[in-house]
Nucleic acid binder design. Structure first.
Lengths: 338, 338
DNA sequence: ATTATTTACGAAAACGTTGTAGTAATTTTT
DNA sequence: AAAAATTACTACAACGTTTTCGTAAATAAT
């Protein structure tokens, strides 16, 4: 009921509060004998230091914020898994904030974090974010940000991504090699780093194989599933519909599958599909989905490790650094001719 | 850089710290004129109150912990989505902790939370948890817990689940109606509330249709995917293999699909499969997966709403209450005869 | 005109921790 | 044997809020 704190311990041990505090923190000022006494009682009474008092006094907290667009998404939940795994190991705590791809929500969340609630932030940009003032301001408040996947080039800090250009290139070349002549590229935003890099890879592949990019083959989707569905349906109903789509993100591939279901389009025979994805059921789909698989868990781990390393050393500024992890192309039924 | 606090505001306005504090909290003790002055400056300087100081002084924080077994799981990530949505609305903050189905990790996490870091906890039990002392102790520290899905009957508080018994009954009856004679039940634990309830539904369905349960039809899986795979493979290789499996959780269904892939077992013709699942690709699988779909997002929302309601009113004890939401059976290819 | 009440503010004490500065007692150095 | 250094502790001030208690001045009631 009544929480037990340093005062309680001190009273029971006939010691001062400072002595108890120092004993618990294994200070050299305290004799081994008293340290033992203190630790024994602390364990016995299940003492847990008050994190608010500690954070207030030390002006920093062992807590970070993870700010991401959504969580019901295999990539992001795996990344959180990675972040949490190193947080648990290092005794850090993880706050989750979702922007739902909404710029204003992202701004509000970041603004709140100026309060000093967290020591640092790991984030992936919302697809709607084009202005980065809120992020600069946060950094001016000495709260470092590490980006992963959807990064912000404009801000000097650490960034963790996969080789998106290479992935886009590989995916597109894979389609070309499998005889596709009219390959479309579907993206969810025009500003996101991942969309741009993957598109550059797509363009490079076309260029390498002397294929001229066609304007109508850039399928500009948004965050609205329904609109994406109708847009894709319209495109696939067309007489000169593409014979392959390289989708920048998983959800678009799912929509494509759904459209093909409705239009009775045979994926792989009439239309090949590949996308960046971490779907755990990609190999069980009909047809199994070819994908560029990102090391999402490792990306989270890496981003968290970098952040914690700096926080532990009280380094509030993180110099530019770009960690690029490898993603792997897994060719499956959706891009192969039977 | 230098964070702005009440003292800064007070100095610039020639007011006392208390006055500024009260003005910001819209106290009746302060004149409208000064309130306006204070608020204008606060907004201008982007003042964000220090949450640690506030939490320390008020002895409570607008933060909750979500303790779940894993996050790379559609059900749990949807539930978090629901929790976060009402947290954002109510200005609460959400800490995430993963137990990875490990009892000791769960104990450690809960023990830490006695520190008062959070005002309350929303949780789903680890499959390895059979002793609840740590939970009782947390509640003795006046930190309320609301359970969802994998609940603890032994503790008096609010619990949010779906109608697991009904779901198990419906799933099993669905298989019986589709001509299955030898239905197995696959679970991941022997202690989890969900496994028990769903099994009771399974048994009730068998009983209702005068089918005697067979011991070999209880497939007791664990958290180890590889072991589950070999166990299921062995069972399905048997001469009197079941003609249907009702899996308690999604991951088991995926393993079943994989085994059938290897053994060239035609799902739906030779073996019907149904499970509790929130897979977003269930309808795109081969064959499409019949599932009991839980309202995961709503469950999260409901659990969070109950907790926040009590926290807002400083009610640290939550009386027994069992909210049961409806899940829906979606019949698809894996249980239908072509 | 005196007393009572209200209005609008300020002083100061918490909340539980950490860290600096101080101090007796003991030990080491000269 | 005196001076210096070390050991093992304690007192106390901070961190930024919130809140209780005062208190002058203005207003209202007698």
């Amino acid at each position: 009921m009544e929480s037990i704190n340093l005062k309680t311990l001190a009273k029971q041990l006939n010691l001062s509060i400072s002595t108890v505090s120092k004993a618990l923190r294994d200070s050299h000022e305290i004799s081994e004998a008293t340290k033992k006494r203190v630790n024994v009682l602390a364990k016995k009474l299940n003492y847990e230091p008050n994190p608010h008092a500690s954070s207030l006094r030390k002006q920093k907290s062992k807590t970070i914020a993870v700010v991401i667009p959504e969580i019901a998404n295999n990539f992001f939940s795996l990344a959180i898994n990675g972040i949490e795994s190193v947080a648990q190991e290092r005794d850090y705590h993880v706050l989750i904030y979702l922007t739902h791809e909404d710029y204003q929500k992202e701004v509000n969340i970041i603004k709140h974090l100026q309060s000093g609630r967290v020591g640092g932030v790991i984030m992936s940009l919302s697809s709607a974010t084009k202005n980065f003032d809120h992020l600069h301001e946060l950094i001016n408040h000495n709260i470092p940000i590490v980006f992963f996947d959807r990064i912000c080039h404009e801000i000097e800090t650490a960034k963790v991504t996969t080789d998106d250009f290479q992935g886009g290139l590989a995916a597109t070349e894979h389609l070309i090699i499998n005889n596709c002549k009219n390959i479309a590229f579907a993206s969810i935003s025009e500003s996101l780093s991942i969309d741009n890099k993957r598109m550059q890879g797509y363009l490079e592949a076309l260029n390498k194989h002397n294929i001229l990019p066609i304007k109508s083959n850039f399928i500009k989707c948004t965050n609205n599933d329904f609109n994406n569905y109708t847009k894709i349906k319209k495109i696939l109903s067309n007489k000169n519909a593409p014979d392959a789509i390289f989708a920048s993100v998983e959800k678009l591939a799912i929509t494509i599958y759904e459209v093909c279901d409705e239009l009775k389009i045979n994926i792989s025979e009439q239309l090949k599909v590949i996308c960046f994805s971490n779907l755990s059921t990609a190999h069980l789909m009909k047809p199994s989905l070819s994908a560029i698989k990102q090391p999402a868990f490792e990306m989270g781990k890496e981003a968290a490790s970098i952040l914690f390393k700096h926080l532990d050393k009280n380094r509030t500024f993180i110099p530019n650094e770009h960690i690029i992890l490898k993603s792997t192309l897994v060719a499956r039924g959706s891009t192969l001719i039977k």
